[in-house]
Amino acid sequence: MRDEEPQEQPETDAERRRRRAQFLRERHEAQQLRDRVKPRRARAARMRQAMRMRTFRW
């Protein structure tokens, strides 16, 4: 387990949003890299996502 010291004050909403935005940017970048490295897997994932969207009922 990681030893993290508890913070004296809880993080603000702005800090949390900034960390989340950074995480989402890095995740998107990693996804693009995987798509370039394994185009067949990326195509299959797109097809699965399209099927999910077609079968989703609003």
Rank of each mutant, 00 (worst) to 15 (best):
45 A>D: 00
45 A>Y: 00
40 R>S: 09
20 R>W: 07
41 R>N: 05
16 R>G: 14
7 Q>Y: 11
2 R>N: 10
55 T>M: 08
23 F>S: 10
22 Q>T: 14
53 M>C: 09
10 P>E: 04
12 T>E: 10
4 E>N: 06
15 E>A: 13
20 R>N: 10
17 R>H: 15
10 P>I: 03
39 P>T: 00
56 F>C: 06
45 A>S: 02
43 R>N: 07
58 W>K: 12
1 M>A: 14
1 M>I: 04
34 R>S: 06
44 A>S: 02
53 M>R: 12
38 K>W: 15
10 P>T: 03
46 R>F: 00
21 A>K: 03
25 R>G: 04
51 M>I: 04
9 Q>D: 08
49 Q>E: 04
17 R>S: 08
7 Q>T: 11
56 F>G: 15
14 A>I: 12
20 R>C: 06
7 Q>P: 03
27 R>N: 06
31 Q>D: 03
45 A>I: 00
36 R>N: 05
45 A>N: 01
29 E>F: 10
57 R>Q: 15
26 E>Q: 03
40 R>Q: 09
11 E>T: 12
57 R>C: 09
34 R>G: 07
20 R>A: 07
26 E>F: 00
40 R>N: 13
28 H>T: 11
27 R>L: 05
13 D>T: 11
45 A>F: 00
34 R>H: 09
27 R>G: 05
28 H>R: 15
16 R>F: 14
53 M>G: 05
2 R>K: 10
53 M>E: 08
35 D>P: 00
29 E>D: 07
